[in-house]
Simulated scan of single mutants.
Amino acid sequence: MSGIQMPNTVEKLRALIAANSMSSVLPDYDNSNLGVIELLASWFGDLGFKCEVIAIADNPGKYNLIATLGTGTGGLVLSGHTDTVPCNPERWASDPFTLTERNNRFYGLGTCDMKGFFALVLAAVEKYHTQSFHQPLIVLATADEESSMSGARSLSSSQFSQGRYAVVGEPTSLKPIRMHKGIIMETIRLVGKAGHSSDPSLGVSAMDAMHNVMGELKQLRIDLASRYQNAHFAVNTPTLNLGCLHGGDNPNRICGSCELAFDLRALPGMSNDDLRTEILQRLNPIAAENRVELTLESLFPGINPFAESENSELVQIAERLTASTSNAVNYATEAPFLQNLGMETIILGPGSIDQAHQVDEFIAQDQIDPCVNLLSQLIEHFCLTPRG
């Protein structure tokens, strides 16, 4: 593969940022990620990777990329998502789709979360692509992490049938993360009966019933915090946030329907399915007492809590290479989906989560060389070193 003229790291990042791949549950803000996938497939293909571009079923315009260098069992997966959150360009100091350098930082939508990771993976791989890999290196680029996680959910066990080690390159300031909370987002709908407000007997107020429902959810929040704690987390209990409330149509009408959306973030060891069951067990009697119909609907399938053993080889290698103890975070990632496919998994990547989803998102330039060096060492350990 001699003579390859690869664009340098900054130019790769510039091209990735220019490719609008915002994902959103709102169609007006949702875009295809194919432009990013095609760039990555071209660059990794030029380095000798076998590249598979896989359309996500029932998600037009959305694609995963699986790029593989080498063969055999085991190996290392470097994984990231190709989409970004939506943005408000008018609030940025520079065009979010134009890579801009100032103050020893690179600004642009996705620089930190997380297109920058792919540019640095390519930089790390370039010096190794002519070497013999004893175990394969697999780069996984997914769709829609910021909205539905449809890319990670669509991965079949047949595509990752061998045991591997997986690094999810979300921004962690190059500190290894081995635990995070799960998340469910749910909507409760109550249907009563509208009527003239001058005579309460003419209707059944869904809003009055929702008041009691909200009180029970607040009590559930207290109960979960008393039952579950994990000292590794900055917020060491589960959290339940009552996010938005809609109901009724006029002050002089009894509220006929009311809707509440909330999220619940569970600690490792807790079950999202068990939480949904407990919520219904606690709320159904309230609905019956208030003579309203209750439905509980998931806004998306949810993400399970994630924990990797502190004794796993991947965690121990990452701690040694970074000189940092692995930690826990409150946000969720694609890590549980990779772990469920039989891989030891951690989250470890350049940039700070404090810059993710923010106006004037950036990656600091002093993260670039350390990240490339770290990725190089992981490749050498898991792919270039013979393993018994």
Rank of each mutant, 00 (worst) to 15 (best):
D273C: 10
R291Q: 14
E313P: 02
N311D: 13
L348R: 05
F300K: 02
L299D: 07
E278Q: 13
P268Y: 14
T295Y: 06
S309M: 11
G302M: 08
A287Y: 01
T345R: 05
V329M: 03
G269D: 13
A332R: 09
T325L: 01
I353S: 10
T333R: 08
A323C: 07
E313T: 11
V292W: 08
I346D: 01
Q358M: 10
I279P: 00
M270Q: 15
L283K: 08
L296V: 14
I303W: 00
A287E: 06
S271W: 10
N327D: 06
Q358T: 09
E297I: 14
F306M: 09
E344W: 03
S271F: 06
F306E: 04
N330W: 04
N327C: 03
T295W: 06
L299S: 10
Q316K: 09
P268L: 12
I279A: 00
G351W: 12
T322V: 01
I346L: 00
L296K: 05
L348D: 04
A307Y: 09
E293S: 15
L338E: 14
D273A: 15
L338C: 11
L338R: 13
D274A: 15
I279N: 01
D360A: 01
L280S: 03
S271P: 04
V359H: 05
T333N: 11
L341W: 11
E319M: 00
P285G: 10
I346P: 10
N311Q: 14
G351D: 12
A332I: 08
L267A: 10
I279D: 00
L314C: 08
N304S: 14
L348A: 09
L341V: 11
R320W: 01
Q316G: 01
S271E: 03
N304E: 15
S309A: 15
I303H: 01
E361D: 08
T325P: 05
A335R: 01
A288N: 03
S352T: 03
E293W: 09
